[in-house]
Design a protein around this nucleic acid. Sequence first.
DNA 1: GGCATTGATAAACCTAGCTTATGAATGGAT
DNA 2: ATCCATTCATAAGCTAGGTTTATCAATGCC
Lengths: 292, 292
Amino acid sequence: MPLPPLAAIRAFEAAARHANFTKAATELGMTQAAVSYQIKLLEDVLGTPVFLRQNRRVTLTRAGRRLAGPTTEAFDLLRDAYTAPDDDMTLTISTLVTLASNWLAPRVGRFQMAHPQIAVRMSTEAHSVDFKSEEFDVAIRYGDGQWPGLRAHEVMPVAFTPMISPTLLEQYGPLHDPAELMRLPFIDPEDRNIAFWLDEAGISDRPAKANAPIMIGAQTGEAAAAIAGHGVAFLNPAFFRIELETGRLIQPFDQVSTDGKSYWLVYPESRRHNLKIVAFRKWVLAEAVADQ
Amino acid sequence: MPLPPLAAIRAFEAAARHANFTKAATELGMTQAAVSYQIKLLEDVLGTPVFLRQNRRVTLTRAGRRLAGPTTEAFDLLRDAYTAPDDDMTLTISTLVTLASNWLAPRVGRFQMAHPQIAVRMSTEAHSVDFKSEEFDVAIRYGDGQWPGLRAHEVMPVAFTPMISPTLLEQYGPLHDPAELMRLPFIDPEDRNIAFWLDEAGISDRPAKANAPIMIGAQTGEAAAAIAGHGVAFLNPAFFRIELETGRLIQPFDQVSTDGKSYWLVYPESRRHNLKIVAFRKWVLAEAVADQ
DNA sequence: GGCATTGATAAACCTAGCTTATGAATGGAT
DNA sequence: ATCCATTCATAAGCTAGGTTTATCAATGCC
């Protein structure tokens, strides 16, 4: 046995509460005629009147009284549930491991300081998160910023420049010309970014590197290897500011190259007004700007 | 802050319960596309997804889980309230005093025997009850059966025939011809029904009765006066079967006249399928037939 | 006695919400 | 491995449900 039309039930609920069709209509943002119609419809469906029409006033019948209680209770539940502010103040971020460990993680504490009510849950994902099937508020992606259905904000370009340890620099003598770099071992010779940098530096003579890659993919690992003096790592200077400032890593050349791609903050277009997301977006972009 | 569209909430409730849009659609008697549309609409309104779309299955998001509980609870309340059998098993009858006291009251016990779950509340009203402003299930009315919006079943014609006590008959000698009736005192000479009977009997010579009416209107009172031997009362033989059978009243002539009107069982057209009303209608009409 | 207010009703209109049709993805059976 | 069944998404198009507008009847109130 199906429920009567919900519009009729809603009209009844308001009318019962006010004992007045006109006031109910005002509350519901419709006309008195519409309420009258809906109540009549409900009575037709139920097969029994729910209101007695007395002079300029309406009174619940017994059947009406029986229904009014549970109905109002039900709508109270719905109103409570659907009008409650979004109290889920957990911001879930899907990040790329490199950006997360070298840039975001050290800074995210400041975001929490600024927004103490927002808890942050960071998750580093190997694959590109699909907002439709996984529950993330925002993600950091690598690419060109074109993802249909998603809004993307550029956080920073994917940049890199050779870095070595002071020990290694001492060992191979001062580097004045980028070409001299080729004498040094590369930590991950197969790193595709290297070509971008060498191209931009105008180095065409590229003898194959003998050494097997020490670390693949994880920039943090490459950095550690570089610090240990194992060779040249092509790293994002924005990620290793501290190491550069403390001298644990040395950036021999000013030239910083990119592969044309960037890191992007992305989230579903439809959630662009979500408070948590707005707050995080503003914070991230400000951090990125301040970083340059 | 208004609720999201109720259709969307309902679709969500079913979908959340089944964790499956197709099953929800089946339950709601609509297509899967409609459920999909409503869920999407809800998510648009809320500004947050309520389901994660995973391969061939859907899962509630945190927001969805937060809403699903209260929503199902609310709909359970509504379903309980609106699909509960009409447990108001009190049949409220508005009757005319004459029919009530002389015919209905003595018989209504049998109705209750036949329908033990139905309580009967009879009320004798001076005015014709308005179903729109007063809470009655059925009424007995006097008239021609034409009341807009009401369904009317003829219970019995308004019939009358002269009745006297045995004492009075003895006193005035045997009555062979209706014209002889005019010698007797009439208990209520102003009773408008008398003319109908006399017309039908072909009596045109009608000397004015000297006696003031003893009782007006209440047939029971007239009957009591007649039994006491105070004169002729024009009464409905159906109402005084016992008195006639026991000889306390005598019906001198077979002729029974009517004023062209009847007693009718009436109730709102819209409630013609109500269980209580159907039961009572069947019973009353069967009683009336058995009575003839 | 006139006015303000309430609910009922008829007519006309419009869009919310449905169906139909189709596609994409994939889990499971053979 | 392949095919099929099943799931949800989406676009297009239609229809009736629900709304507004306009008006009436009734009556409580000043």
